[in-house]
Simulated assay, not measured.
Amino acid sequence: MSNATMWWVLSGVLVALELVTGTFYLLMLSLGAVAAALTAMAGYGLTSQLVVAAVVGGLGAVLLGQWRKRQAATPQEAQDQHLDLGATVMVEAWDAQGTTRVLHRGAAWSAELAPGQSAAPGAHRIQAIAGNRLVLEKI
């Protein structure tokens, strides 16, 4: 099997793994493998292929990381994206771990107490969303 074929196979495997994991970093490494395959098809040696794969894949991953940092949401942008933030819910009772179940938008949600808050029943405001759990603060 030629070097170019090996690079194309590696690129396909990296794309498949990227589809399973959902990160774009493996896609950048796959682009490096594609660049190395094109280098192999151009007739360059294995050392040149490895350097091209490392430079293209590494540079792509670094640029993707920097782009993602710039895309980080500010608190106001998070508010705009999560319309549930600031909504009011009623808490009947808290359990010993500081969690409860509340009704919000017609569904039962798991909720936890925000840091520094006391566990008391009554009206609470949604301060944040941690995964699939609401973080509540007492009103």
Rank of each mutant, 00 (worst) to 15 (best):
P115I: 00
V20M: 13
K69M: 07
I126E: 10
S48W: 11
A130F: 00
L10Y: 04
A130M: 01
V9N: 00
W8F: 15
Q71M: 11
T47D: 09
G57E: 07
S118L: 12
G131K: 03
G98S: 11
F24E: 06
V135T: 05
L26I: 11
R125G: 00
A107C: 00
A73K: 15
R101H: 14
S118V: 13
L113P: 02
V34I: 15
A93T: 10
V52M: 12
T88K: 14
T21S: 13
Q97I: 01
G106R: 08
G106W: 05
L134P: 07
V89W: 07
S11N: 05
Q79V: 00
S110W: 09
D84Q: 06
R101G: 00
A4S: 15
V135M: 08
E92M: 08
A123N: 09
L27V: 12
V20F: 13
A35V: 07
T23A: 08
S2L: 02
Q79E: 12
Q127V: 01
M1W: 05
G106H: 08
L113F: 06
L63M: 12
V89I: 05
A42D: 09
V52E: 07
G22N: 04
A96F: 08
M6T: 11
H124P: 02
V20D: 00
E92F: 01
N132F: 01
L31W: 14
V55Y: 03
L85G: 08
L134E: 01
L27P: 05
A87G: 12
A107L: 10
V102H: 08
A130I: 00
A130W: 00
A93K: 13
A108I: 10
A72V: 04
E18T: 09
G131S: 05
A120N: 11
A33K: 12
A119C: 01
L46N: 07
P121N: 01
S11V: 06
D80H: 08
L134A: 05
V13R: 05
P115F: 02
G57S: 09
A4Q: 05
L136A: 03
Q117Y: 10
Q81V: 09
L64R: 11
G86A: 07
Q127W: 06
N3Q: 09
L85S: 06
T100I: 03
L46S: 10
W67E: 04
V102G: 07
V20T: 10
